[in-house]
Write a protein that binds this DNA or RNA. Sequence first.
DNA 1: CTAATAGTGTCTATAAGACAATATACT
DNA 2: AGTATATTGTCTTATAGACACTATTAG
Lengths: 239, 239
Amino acid sequence: MGVELWPSVDVVIFTVVDGALKVLLTRRSESSSAFPGQWSLPGGALKKYVDEVDTLEEAAALELKRKTGAEAPYLEQLETFGGRARDPRSWTVTVAYFALLPHDQIHLEAGKGTEDVMLWDVTSKGVKAKLAFDHKDILISAVNRLRSKLEYTAIAGYLLGKTFTLPQLKSVYESILGESIPEMSFRRAVSNSDALVKTNKKECVPGRRPTTLYRFKKGAKDVLFFPKSMVYGKGKGGR
Amino acid sequence: MGVELWPSVDVVIFTVVDGALKVLLTRRSESSSAFPGQWSLPGGALKKYVDEVDTLEEAAALELKRKTGAEAPYLEQLETFGGRARDPRSWTVTVAYFALLPHDQIHLEAGKGTEDVMLWDVTSKGVKAKLAFDHKDILISAVNRLRSKLEYTAIAGYLLGKTFTLPQLKSVYESILGESIPEMSFRRAVSNSDALVKTNKKECVPGRRPTTLYRFKKGAKDVLFFPKSMVYGKGKGGR
DNA sequence: CTAATAGTGTCTATAAGACAATATACT
DNA sequence: AGTATATTGTCTTATAGACACTATTAG
């Protein structure tokens, strides 16, 4: 029974670049005793953080800050993965978090060397690279959680900058959900949600009609967004 | 840095007795070094289980079996709670699970002494007893998860026996959700879900019309149940 | 003018809830 | 018959999506 079982904390950091969903991955050193040189989710033993932080979420935020140089506008606990098989060396436990932030807030140089930290394209099947440990499972779980939350909240807003156009927002939803949303339904949902405010600026691109820029009201990103996800009591029928 | 941080596993075990939601709690021994004699969620250090099990979920299932004598028909990871404040002795981490099972499968005698294991009434605010550690937070988180899952799945079925009447099922939904469901809407949802099968038996109570007994189809409890929780693509409008 | 995208108006099928009606037991 | 609950029928209204339309820029 001489085993030591320290949990670790891993963070799945998502962002969107030109409409495409990306994850931040780090490369393990060549001298690691497990999965040397392979790509993995950023994270580390809770032991490293335990003197500096009071909660698990703070530990995740600290890890995120070290890898991106940014505060996390959105950070949520995902799931805890534990078992005998995930690390060949011993029974391990890792608490996974997932984070959303705008691309322009990520400064990869904050990490070690630039070649060791990279943004990868993600689909619902994961990334192209082979990942260390069970990080593929964790990543897929995070993508699924992101998708399901998009269906009823406005958290896509955390992936965009302060202001954005409706076509941009719609395209984030569409590319992550993998299906197109009817124009009128989308705009009605936005309008009914009362979560966005028109700015008086426009985004102008040659050859196109200028597009109105919007921003989120405070706190509105966590709020119900799409109307179909309603439950008994707030329905549409009746009189 | 001589700290040892072994995670523990706690299980929130729900059942329904006469339409009322209950949780299973255990009393800590009077000689405990923290929270002696207080009520708490069943659980224990992962260390205890790590030689016997290969995954976290197996550890939770084992804990549940020891306290109830039953296999868990439904067991799901809830959330992981960790921090410096939750146990006065040290920084701790616990992975919480939540389980649903029919009342008649619980055999409290399986635990130590009957006075040490009990079913308590639960509301969305928790239980009457003061709980050890942050178990009140864990319990409330579990109730919220249960409620939100009831809104779009049929997991209430795990709380009832093999067969049940529609009024019984409806009453489970209503007592946990805390609101009444329109009769016609409920029956339509059940009918559309295609999750239930009529048996040819009836439940008979003197003075009332006999009630048809139903049972769930295999796997149907985890399936979409109430139609309002639909998303783009499966809507009601259009032509 | 055309091309391209942004943004709006309107019509329709569908489904949720209200409410009334009917069914089937027991006393 | 009367009571109590189970179960079904029908009508009304809100709304998601289809689709056609208008608006605003550049060339």
